[in-house]
């Protein structure tokens, strides 16, 4: 049997009078691909922001491998192995592809200002060694042709892929993907599905994915949780959730 990697219990997050997340619980197993669905404004992105420490929920616990990470700073949570992509892209657009990936390796590197200024020795060796890790990511996601391209100049679909690459470069235990195929055409969506399958196959990374594209979710996810107005309305296998009356109602009543 698989072991539980992430256990989220009774999370409530409020912004003034708005309750973005209302008493939501779920758990994710090691190696699982867990999907969160729900209409716009349901609280999916807010949940990700709680998981990696950008927001601090007023109530509840988040156990990562048994350790409650609520109140930890985002950098500390990153070190514990939670990586993420953003719904609206969070790339460093003035840097090129390699530099963005190298920033994914930041935690695995040591050079400070002094050794960097000297360059020869530690920093040079580290740059070369970590470059190889980035090359591997580029190979996996077929980003090699863009190696030295400024990120701001890349097509949207490639930027989405690169952001996945930067998260992968962190060698995370859990990968949070916020709408990885939003705004992509059919072909790009199929490519993304292929990459996610390859990542699972090769690295067995645990993933939590927020996505609106239903066929995409149904194809890939092991389990699905549906939320609406901050509340969990269903959880189970894709088939169970798709046919759940509350989910059907939320999607017919909502804007999706």
């Amino acid at each position: 049997m698989s072991t539980t990697l992430l256990e989220v219990s009774d999370i409530t997050l409020r912004f003034g009078g708005v309750t973005a997340i209302n008493d939501v619980s779920f758990s994710v197993d090691e190696g699982e691909l867990f999907a969160i669905i729900g209409p716009n404004g349901a609280g999916k992105t807010s949940m990700f922001n709680c998981l990696n420490g950008v927001y601090r929920p007023q109530q509840g616990t988040i156990l990562l491998n048994g350790e409650n990470i609520i109140g930890y700073k985002p950098t500390r949570i990153a070190k514990l192995g939670i990586a993420r992509t953003f719904q609206n892209l969070g790339l460093f657009t003035n840097l090129n592809v390699v530099d963005n990936l190298m920033l994914g390796r930041h935690m695995h590197m040591k050079s400070g200002f002094l050794s960097a200024a000297v360059w020869f020795g530690r920093t040079r060796n580290e740059e070369i060694a970590q470059r190889e890790a980035c090359e591997e990511v580029m190979r996996l996601l077929e980003l090699e042709p863009y190696r030295n391209t400024l990120v701001g100049l890349l097509p949207y679909g490639v930027q989405k892929r690169l952001e996945l690459g930067r998260a992968l470069a962190m060698e995370p235990r859990i990968l949070l993907l916020d709408e990885p195929v939003a705004g992509m055409n059919h072909e790009e969506t199929e490519d993304m599905a292929r990459y996610l399958l390859e990542i699972r196959g090769q690295l067995n990374t645990t993933m939590i994915m927020v996505e609106h594209d239903m066929p995409f979710v149904m194809d890939l996810a092991d389990r699905v949780m549906a939320i609406d107005f901050g509340q969990r309305i269903a959880i189970g296998t894709p088939e169970q959730v798709r046919t759940d009356p509350a989910v059907v109602a939320a999607y017919l009543g909502g804007d999706q």
């Binding site: 990696n52 420490g53 950008v54 700073k73 985002p74 950098t75 949570i77 990153a78 070190k79 990586a83 993420r84 953003f86 969070g90 790339l91 460093f92 657009t93 003035n94 840097l95 530099d99 190298m102 920033l103 994914g104 930041h106 935690m107 590197m109 040591k110 050079s111 400070g112 200002f113 960097a116 360059w119 920093t123 580290e126 740059e127 930067r166 998260a167 962190m170």
Partner: peptide, 21 residues
Amino acid sequence: SRPGRAMQAVRDRDIAAEIIG
């Protein structure tokens, strides 16, 4: 190298910088 890239990450997008450590 590492510190300079981190500085530019802070400049371009501070939240994204935090979540990559």
